[in-house]
Write a protein that binds this DNA or RNA. Structure first.
Lengths: 201, 201
DNA sequence: TTCTTTTTATGGCGGCCACTCAAAAAAAAC
DNA sequence: GTTTTTTTTGAGTGGCCGCCATAAAAAGAA
């Protein structure tokens, strides 16, 4: 009936994730968005509505991918704690690898820090996404506890927040000019923190 | 011989710290700067040169204050490790207190994440400041080691980076909508991490 | 071909951006 | 009071901001 779009919406969104993750919300102009998506203003606004909505969709997509990444990683481990430990180390390794990802720090954290006091809607979105991640970590840790990997007295939600805090710190540190070795050491040291909560046995 | 300035440069700089810490570099317009400093454009540019230079001076001042804060806190403790632990908890407490500081996250980290890939000079400044802080932590930990508080085999610089990473994570988490209790628990959990490195005795 | 529908390219909207400058105002020196 | 020197003022700079209207172009459906 009609002319089909020449762009692929998903591909475009992926490119938007790249730009926004790299430069942040305020740091990315619509001119740069046009360039990154290889789309003209009309098409962009028809497809996504506004810069805000595009960013919001990009953040949601980033979140989804990050969640899938965690899930697929954990699927390879019978021990939850070992899985989480190697996840931290994997992050450190990925971050210290030669530049391929748009940024090393987490896009959600970047948004949280940038949008607070500046852009309420995005701040709220980052906030709720982080709550969801806290929930996911909590569920994982409760499973570990059921499997006898964690001390029965461990407060899993509290430990989940510690884990999340460590992850934020690790990926923020990755934006510094550290060597690969130093970053991987940091990943190891953070993963070692979990040892403290392990069940005796 | 001449008319003296009606503003106090130090006071103005202090106000600039407040605004930039609160809203970030891209999030603060010169209009807002004028309002915050209660100065007109001409005076601002005469006194500070440019938005960039003003931000840079503000970041330097923030850094200096943060350093003094750490030093004065540590002065109250004979045990370095105890001092650092209570410092983490103090940060958690301060961050969870009713809004008084312009932001909860660290201004240096906010700048690091915002300015990377966007504003090279500011990124470099944040980076070097963080190196200096790493050095300061290293020196403190080496002192602790000399005092027999840390295992002789502890790599102090490496532990300093872990400490810095924790701090970054803690203060980033503080930007989330957590309760005071939850944040203080996080501060405690992070300070507990240092236990692992304590000397047996 | 003709009709629809949607994407393109383009030019430009009002507004805010960081920044400048000339003139007015203010305070010390004499 | 006059001069000298500096600060303050605020309108104004060009330029980019996010966004939109228009119209030409493109591609299926009939």
């Amino acid at each position: 009936m009609s002319r089909p779009p020449s762009y692929d919406r998903e591909t475009a969104l992926e490119k938007a994730v790249g730009l926004f993750w790299h430069k942040g919300y305020h740091g990315s102009s619509m001119k740069q968005v046009e360039q990154a998506l290889d789309m003209r203003p009309g098409s962009i606004y028809a497809a996504f509505g506004s810069k805000d909505e595009l960013f919001s969709e990009a953040l949601a997509r980033y979140t989804k991918e990050a969640g899938e990444d965690l899930a697929s990683h954990m699927a390879g481990y019978a021990s939850v704690i070992e899985g989480l430990q190697s996840f931290l180390q994997k992050i450190a390794r990925d971050c210290s690898a030669s530049e391929q990802a748009p940024a090393r720090a987490c896009m959600i954290v970047k948004t949280l820090l940038e949008a607070n006091n500046t852009h309420g809607a995005l701040y709220a979105q980052a906030n709720s996404v982080l709550s969801a991640i806290e929930d996911a970590f909590t569920a994982l840790l409760e499973k570990a506890q059921r499997q006898g990997e964690l001390t029965p007295r461990t407060d899993c939600r509290r430990l989940a927040r510690l884990l999340q805090g460590q992850l934020m710190g690790l990926r923020s540190m990755a934006e510094r000019n550290l060597s690969a070795t130093e970053l991987e050491q940091l990943g190891q040291d953070m993963s070692a923190v979990l040892e403290r909560y392990r069940a005796e046995n």
